[in-house]
Design a protein around this nucleic acid. Structure first.
Lengths: 205, 205
DNA sequence: AAAAAAGATTGAATGAATTCATTTTTTAAG
DNA sequence: CTTAAAAAATGAATTCATTCAATCTTTTTT
């Protein structure tokens, strides 16, 4: 069996994650104080900082878990994509977007994105950036799959197209998180329209 | 002549902008304390807050001035674009990127982008977001111009294409700001490759 | 030109994140 | 089973952005 120390550590880490996630959802990131998180996790403030470098880190850890889910949801679309380019893109992107608000508020997304830009060298920022890279890769993989199926023209630069599509859907999601009034449907239909030219042009005719 | 009060106000505002800009460049955003900015501007801390809502605001004001310059530099390319789609895009985007590091460090860009995401409702964030919108519009205008010249196919959705191109160049710039090791040339060549598929496909053949 | 009103400045007080010297707990060694 | 060493936890102290009641300056009114 694992040592007492290791078990306690895992336990505390779980308590911190749960406490922080719950508080962020209840009162928002800014209003959740480290002291509150520590109290709810039944640890001291100092101990919090033994587990996470700073307040942003714990948010990025929470958000990263959500992105893992999104990635995994995307995988099932890529494995068995709709037959048309537009259909496949709408399906994958719709899956991403629909998952995004299950556990996280727009404010949490905004803050997480902001932190990953501002402190790109912190460990959890790197993890978050790596997840973004994998999402981008997943879009390219979808295009590649469509190429293999003969739906996308053979001479298309899959990576370049995948990156462009991903950067667009990503920026649009940031836009979505910035505007409280923008709905998921607004987001999806705008991205769909933006995708259409490229999607149509890379499709075999 | 304008009243004494108005002149003093403009004076103080200029001093704050100069002091903050200089300090951000000298020691970075995080290490520049409001107290230091106030001291250099020969005002008190309290007065700083009569001019700017918070520390981020003064950075966004500084960065916004730079973006205005970028917009104006872009205008001259759009007014007289190179004859090919790729040539025109490379020229416009190159102009944007080359201007970006004249007065601002990567850290300043990162922080400004982060703040505009995190606090989208602050007055200066709105100004920054509006400037982004105008940059995006400028890319669309370029495509429209190329269409008028007969270089871009008549049935292309100019706005959709412009938005996709802009969101890509924008995300790539964020990436650039995040990695201290990435050079302007790396950035330009990667974006150029990403643009090629779309650029080629919308070109009249 | 004095008095009142409006507009600005000021810096000490507040509040929250982060640090770090001490203390406590766990593990390893004898 | 003791004891020494290593690892973690602790919370009081520090630092910095931000606020606000008191004071000062400019403008307007009489």
């Amino acid at each position: 069996m694992t040592g007492l120390r290791a078990r306690q550590k895992a336990d505390r880490n779980r308590r911190i994650l749960d406490a922080a996630g719950a508080l962020f959802r209840e009162v928002g990131y800014d209003s959740a104080r480290i002291e509150d998180i520590a109290e709810r996790a039944e640890i001291s403030v100092g101990t919090f900082y033994n587990y996470y470098e700073n307040k942003g880190d714990i948010l990025l850890a929470t958000v990263s878990m959500e992105v893992e889910e999104v990635l995994s949801a995307g995988r099932s679309i890529v494995d068995n994509p709709p037959a048309s380019v537009m259909g496949a893109l709408d399906a994958l992107i719709g899956e991403y977007y629909d998952h995004s608000l299950y556990y996280l508020s727009k404010e949490m997304w905004r803050t997480a994105m902001a932190i990953s830009i501002q402190q790109p060298e912190s460990p959890f920022s790197k993890r978050y950036t790596e997840l973004d890279r994998r999402l981008c890769e997943q879009v390219s993989t979808l295009i590649l799959k469509l190429k293999a199926k003969g739906v996308v023209a053979i001479d298309v630069d899959v990576e370049a197209v995948g990156e462009m599509l991903f950067h667009n859907l990503n920026t649009m999601f940031t836009e979505f998180a910035k505007r409280e009034t923008m709905t998921l449907d607004d987001l999806k239909s705008r991205v769909s329209r933006q995708n259409r030219p490229l999607a149509t042009l890379i499709a075999t005719r």
